[in-house]
Computed example of a mutant assay.
Amino acid sequence: MTRPSVAPATAAAPAPVVIPHSLTEDAVAIFTGVLLISVGVAFFTSAGLLTGGTAGLAFLLHYATGIGFGKIFFVLNLPFYWLALRKLGRAFTVKTFIAVLLLSLLTEVQSQLLQFAQLQPLYAAIAGGLITGTGFLVLFRHRCSLGGVGIAALYLQDRYGWRAGKVQMAVDCCIVLLALWTVEPVRVLWSIAGAVALNLVLAMNHRPGRYMVV
């Protein structure tokens, strides 16, 4: 009588090794991400468009008051550092503060470094959104953000598993719609296209469990 064969037990897959980013890698990533975002901001500003989040509020105040986008953006982010420090840690808060300060400085001198003789608004919205989304993706993957809605989106993703891209897309579209009181409707529509392009980059590439970092 033959003994029934028993399938060998499947060995448990080893836990993936998570290698922390070095300080140099974080520094290069922050500069890269912020530089990309500053180019996207230049696209939006040159075409008279908006974006969402804290940057969207900064755009609205910039168009309404004439005060530089960078100055307004830096001030608007100040209240969010408390949430970042309490919920996301000191390292995240420090990196976010550096990124916000760097973007504020870059956008203040951007007109001297980058100028457009002609820029079609719809192209500016889509290209600017994709470039900005890529910059945000770089920052997010190094546990950094540009404050404001980005901090809230990352907190909700870590706490409840909500995708940061979807959270930011919902908030961004609401903020852009508020611009109907100050910006002509057709530019608001182009701005929404830019917000969708930006957040599609995040929704498709920044998912819980897809990319591990400490």
Score class of each variant (00 low, 15 high):
111 S>F: 05
112 Q>H: 11
116 F>S: 10
116 F>C: 09
117 A>W: 05
118 Q>G: 10
119 L>I: 05
120 Q>R: 09
120 Q>E: 15
121 P>H: 07
121 P>K: 07
122 L>Q: 12
122 L>A: 15
123 Y>M: 13
123 Y>F: 14
123 Y>R: 05
125 A>N: 08
125 A>Q: 06
127 A>M: 11
127 A>P: 07
127 A>S: 12
129 G>E: 01
131 I>L: 12
131 I>Q: 11
132 T>K: 01
132 T>D: 06
133 G>H: 01
133 G>M: 00
134 T>A: 13
136 F>P: 06
138 V>Q: 02
139 L>W: 01
141 R>A: 10
141 R>F: 08
141 R>I: 08
145 S>R: 02
146 L>N: 03
146 L>F: 00
146 L>W: 01
147 G>T: 03
151 I>K: 00
151 I>F: 00
153 A>E: 06
154 L>A: 09
155 Y>R: 03
157 Q>R: 09
160 Y>G: 02
160 Y>C: 07
161 G>L: 02
163 R>W: 02
165 G>M: 03
165 G>N: 04
166 K>M: 12
166 K>N: 15
167 V>L: 07
167 V>H: 00
168 Q>C: 06
169 M>H: 05
171 V>M: 10
172 D>Q: 04
173 C>N: 09
174 C>Q: 02
174 C>D: 04
174 C>P: 06
175 I>F: 03
177 L>I: 11
177 L>P: 04
177 L>H: 01
178 L>Q: 06
179 A>E: 10
179 A>D: 11
185 P>V: 02
